[in-house]
Every structure is written in C-alpha cells, then in structure tokens.
Design a protein around this nucleic acid. Structure first.
Length: 311
DNA sequence: AAACGTGACAACCGCAGTGTT
DNA sequence: CAACACTGCGGTTGTCACGTT
C-alpha cells in the first residue's frame, strides 16, 4: 500500500492567492520551513490550498530574493544561448539567472523573447510574410525532413540575435556559447552560476569559418580551432555526417556550402531560406528538443503533417 | 462609454522520475 | 516487488489590465 491521498481536491481553494494567504504561507515557512513535505504544509499553515499550489506560490513568488520586472540584455543573452543549446529546460536556465524562476523565464520567453527573436530574424533577412501558397514553393519536393535540426537552427538564430549585441563587425562575430559537451551536471547546481561558467565559452564566426570555443577548461574538446561549424557540431556529436544512416543524421541541415555544413555568414546568404522559415516555425510551435530522439521524431512527424497540409 | 482584442503573468494540469509503504 | 504518493518540471490555461475601435 502507498500513502494517504495528498489532498481533498473538492475542499481545496483554487485561483489567485490573496494577501492573507500569502502572509500565512510566508509566516509558516519563515518559522518552520517547508519540512520537506509540501502536502502536509497547507493544513499545518491553516491554508485551504493544495500542497502543490503552495509550493508553486512559494517558489515563484514568495521566496526571498525573487527578482521581478524587466530582464536585462545580459539575461536575454543567457536565455537565448541556453535555449539554443538545451531547449526548454527552464529550471536549468533559471538556475543560471539568480532571482529568476523557471516560470518567469518561460513566460518571458513565450511572450517577449520569442517574438523579439522572430522579429530579429525576419527583419535582418527581409523575409516577406508567407502564406500557405508561398510556403509551398519554398519546400523542395525532395526535402529530407530527417535532415531537419531544431537545435542547430536555434543555435544559429540565437547567435544571430546575440551577435547584434556582441562585439560585432561584418566578418567577425563573437558570441557566448554554452559548450554542448559540458556535463549536464554543470547546469544542475543549486543556482550557483559559478559552476556553470566552465560550460560557457566564446565562439567566433570568421568569414565562413566557425572558430570553436576558446579554451576555458582542461577538456580536450576545447582544443578545436578554426573549425567550420559543421565539423564543430559533428565532432561534438550534435550532428551526423551527411549520408549517414538517417537515424544518426537527424541533426544535419542541408546547407548552402555544398558540404552539408551550416555556415552563418552575415555577408553572404546567411541561412537557407527554408531553414529560416523552419526556425520561425520551430519557435512558433515550441517543439525544441535537446538530443531527445522521441521528441525529434514527434517534431518531424508534425513538420511532415504540416507539409502534407500544404500540398 | 462599452465592447473587443491583446499582452503579461499567475496558476493549474498532467506527466515522469523517485521515494515510501 | 508492486502500488501508490511525492516532487519537480514543462506546457497550457485563466485572469486581469490596458489599449484600440
């Protein structure tokens, strides 16, 4: 047998919290802490709320040192960079932004940053709005959906956004880059941004070359230099080699450099047009994944479904 | 001034992993 | 070991304020 039911759902208040409820919860936790048991807490604190609701209220609103209000440019950059690399892992992203909650960041991304990003991409590439008819012509009939890469697309998008604020000139753009090889545990610290910094490196696009992360740790994978983007991503296991078995080549975008690489060059055609559309599509559908084959498959299916609708 | 639309944010829901009985 | 509760997370929905028509 298990435990007693967590709460009587019929007898639990829902909806916005009143100042009185906030005060009760805060007072109780200030005195006794959470006790590691959120389910029992509301009853002890004299609240007619579900423990889950109390936990959320505390973590997202009442907890000390919670930062509300405008996000700084630096926070924007961190969110974009992390989102591009790890996807919608809001709790991990939040751990790198002291005072910010995952819910806050998630809301901020969904309501503002995503639009900002899309606005940047479309304005910087002067993309006309596409209707279904237009979209149809952008998709080659032999388009290989297994070659679609949400992660790389967002990586590129994010670097484009970030590059507008960072050390930018026409041929040489530097932006912060989270090392995709850094152990995930780097991101799982208790909000300590210091432990993550070993995962942050600087990467540069020079002409058509992607210059890999500059060495910031003893990890050998940092030793790469003057590496093209595709090679870098391939070496780091993010993308597969062109012509590989489809199961391993899901991360490969058909690029404009013949070799299958994805190059970001702000002077030349920076991104394949259809890739850009897919970035926007990706952002709008929230199907960003992080090396998760099942989700990728799901994403591919959805893309395919959409394309089927257009034909 | 009322109706409607939109954006921002708080809160809820459902799922998955883990722990407990 | 099975069954169930607990916890944390990400996605979604609800609500409110404000702007526009």
């Amino acid at each position: 047998m298990g435990r007693a039911p967590c709460c009587d759902k019929a007898n639990v208040k829902k909806g916005p919290w009143s100042p009185e409820e906030d005060a009760k919860l805060k007072e109780y936790i200030d005195k006794f802490g959470t006790g590691g048991n959120w389910i029992a807490l509301p009853q002890k604190a004299g609240l007619k709320r579900c423990g889950k609701s109390c936990r959320l209220r505390w973590l997202n609103y009442l907890r000390p040192n919670i930062k509300h209000g405008e996000f700084s440019d630096e926070e924007d950059r961190v969110i974009c960079s992390l989102y591009a690399n790890i996807g919608s892992r809001w709790s991990i992203i939040a751990a790198q932004l002291p005072g910010r909650t995952d819910n806050d960041i998630k809301n901020y991304w969904n309501t503002k940053l995503k639009k900002k990003l899309m606005g940047f991409v479309s304005s910087s590439h002067k993309i006309k709005p596409l209707n279904h008819h237009h979209y149809q012509h952008q998709i080659p009939t032999n388009y290989n959906y297994n070659n679609y890469s949400p992660q790389i697309s967002l990586f590129q998008t994010s670097s484009l956004l970030i590059s507008s604020n960072y050390n930018t000139n026409t041929n040489n753009t530097t932006f912060p880059c989270y090392d995709i090889n850094a152990p995930i545990s780097n991101f799982l610290s208790n909000g300590a941004s210091t432990s993550c910094t070993s995962g942050i490196t600087t990467s540069t696009f020079q002409e058509n070359n992607f210059v890999g992360p500059t060495a910031t740790s003893s990890d050998e994978s940092y030793g790469v230099s003057n590496l093209d983007f595709h090679t870098y991503m391939y070496n780091n296991g993010v993308i597969g080699e062109e012509g590989e078995d489809q199961g391993n080549s899901k991360f490969l975008i058909s690029g404009n450099n013949g070799g299958g690489g994805c190059y970001v060059d702000e002077q030349q055609n920076p991104l394949d047009y259809s890739s850009l559309e897919e970035i926007k599509e990706l952002i709008s559908t929230n199907h960003v994944t992080c090396n998760n084959n099942n989700l990728l498959l799901d994403h591919e299916i959805k893309i395919e479904e959409k394309v089927m609708m257009y034909y």
